[in-house]
Design a protein around this nucleic acid. Structure first.
Lengths: 339, 339
DNA sequence: ATTGGCACTCGGCTGGCGAGAGTGCTGGAG
DNA sequence: CTCCAGCACTCTCGCCAGCCGAGTGCCAAT
């Protein structure tokens, strides 16, 4: 009973089940995949695979389907990479390069993933904490209010209102703006707190109050976990016939709506370089126990990324195809991003 | 056969069907609503209502359910307004007032609608075309690129990159910024084209090229239909058991994903003041033929609004409750908005 | 180790049956 | 003229029995 053939059988089961989404029996298996052995032999292998917890049967007298563990082994050892076609790559490239601003880039990336994989795409905006400051702008708003606008080098623009008790004139604002920008330009957003502190200390007394207020707002705004934003695309794909979930769509949709938790999941998964896959019950979120998540960082050609994007679909998904799509989009995205 | 009682019967049918979501027969009707007549009489009324196309029966020997036309009549003439409770109003107010910026306001409004109505919320960002310019910012980006940031008086911040062939120094930029801002401050975004034209004409030659480029980018960006943005919330509600659609979720989810078309639908509906309701097949979108859309403008206490928000659910929805929720959120939103 | 044969299990489909709900109609009462 | 009780009729739904087929596990033979 060769170990190698057993894995062949597992691969065949996964591929067949992904394609037909019906439990696959020994006869079918020998017909569709040239394994060179008889159904009876395959049955023996199947018994062993089931013993090992890699496949299971929904009912007696039904074929076998892979378990989460089976998919895991498939993804780790059995799946062959299937690169995208050249036209596909070109389509990604041009579609992304047509984006006019960051919102557009993120939206387009989501649509690409959703379309390529036929699943739900999740794209995170570049994380503020991993971005650098490009520019800080102070705009007087209605009386007594100041609008603070932060522009990062990844293209994100954040705004925050600030109640200013003391009066302020344009000159003061201009000076503040100049000083802050000089102090912070190019720094990571996480580091500007200290830079700002130096600036405010050096200020004349009458400006210091305003200065510290601004510094506070900015650092507070950037520290917030809640400021991490994600965008979902292709939820309509969930309703396609190919996505029948045992438990129905409800838990899945609910999990997707808990954006904070979802982002946490993705962040934890993201293995620094390359694509990470989390299968079925491996996902912390109970609602996603019937789905698999394929994730990649993006935004920097090497090492640490500024954000994450991923594709979520049923555990019975086309892993090689999904992985290829996610990787490709992440790569082109990284190239386009620091526009 | 009094006309008035017939309408009472229709109202009873609608209310019962909305609550139980099962076809309602003559016996049940007389038991649960004190109509003061016997089932047989109700049957006669029902026959008349059916004749008039206001109700229908799924099969012979099943109770009646309202048709789109029946709901329409119910909404227009029979529904009694049911104002929100005081705690609910207070909750809306505080929840909205805690928002830190426009994104947050929009997101919170969506969550409120979704939660109050148990349906899907659609919230449009303030339309650029109906906003005024508060501030225009020019930030040098990587070499040869200029980042143009537009801040509107409704709080939206739009960005656009601009390739600048000619070199530019900070002084030039500062001057441009000052002139444009002086010329455009307070104007509607749709009118700044002409204001900008005057500015660029008055410029020294060496700056004019850059000036017109900026003016062009800004006006082009604001003119784009695609720049209208909407946010969906509460899609998980679609999967609740209370939302069984004949045709399944697919067409609904697909319709919601066609954001441009969807926004068009909402815009067309929006009757200038107050809440508009579009029922079932009245919706242009085929995917929404089993749903009703309740829409209101918001963003200005009187007359024309700067954006739209709405709640989408099955035709069998709680119209009075949904209308009340949409109206309330729209109202508080208008109050909070020009922060 | 592999394989053909065989008995066994079980889910899903089909068809028939009865119960229940609801209707429309008719004829009589107010 | 309106209302209402009674009645016959229709149709859906749920249930049960029975069959079919797919698939399995085991065993003996190669």
């Amino acid at each position: 009973m060769s170990e190698e053939r057993r894995l062949d059988v597992l691969r065949a089961i996964v591929e067949d089940y992904v394609r037909t989404r019906e439990p696959v029996g020994s006869r079918i298996l020998t017909e569709r995949h040239k394994l060179g052995v008889s159904p009876a032999t395959v049955r023996n292998d199947m018994a062993a695979l089931e013993e090992a917890g890699l496949i299971a049967q929904p009912h007696t007298s039904a074929g076998r389907i892979p378990t989460d563990k089976g998919y895991r082994l498939f993804v780790d050892q059995l799946a062959e990479v299937r690169p995208l076609t050249v036209p596909q790559k070109r389509a990604i490239e041009t579609f992304l390069s047509e984006a006019v601003d960051l919102d557009d880039v993120v939206a387009r990336a989501g649509r690409l993933i959703a379309q390529l994989t036929g699943q739900v795409a999740v794209v995170q905006y570049p994380s503020l904490r991993r971005s650098g400051l490009r520019h800080l702008e102070l705009v007087p708003s209605s009386e007594g209010r100041l609008l603070v606008v932060v522009i990062t080098d990844t293209g994100r623009v954040e705004q925050r209102y600030l109640d200013v008790p003391v009066g302020m004139d344009d000159g003061t604002l201009g000076e503040l703006r100049a000083r802050f920008n000089a102090a912070a330009a190019g720094h990571r957003l996480t580091e500007i707190g200290t830079a700002f502190a130096r600036v405010t200390e050096a200020m004349p007394d009458e400006h210091r109050a305003l200065g510290t207020a601004v510094a506070e707002v900015v650092t507070a705004a950037l520290a917030e976990e809640s400021e991490e934003r994600i965008v979902l695309t292709g939820q309509a794909n969930l309703a396609r016939s190919s996505m029948r979930f045992e438990q129905g769509l409800r838990p899945v949709l609910e999990a997707l709506e808990e954006q904070v938790v979802l982002l946490g999941l993705l962040t934890d998964m993201s293995d620094d370089a390359g694509v990470a896959v989390s299968i079925g019950h491996e996902n912390r979120l109970a609602g996603l126990s019937e789905t698999s998540v394929v994730t990649s960082g993006y935004g920097s050609s090497d090492g640490d990324s500024v954000a994450i994007l991923s594709s979520i679909g049923p555990t019975r998904m086309d892993y090689p195809g999904t992985i290829a799509a996610v990787r490709a989009v992440a790569r082109y995205l990284s190239r386009v991003l620091p526009s």
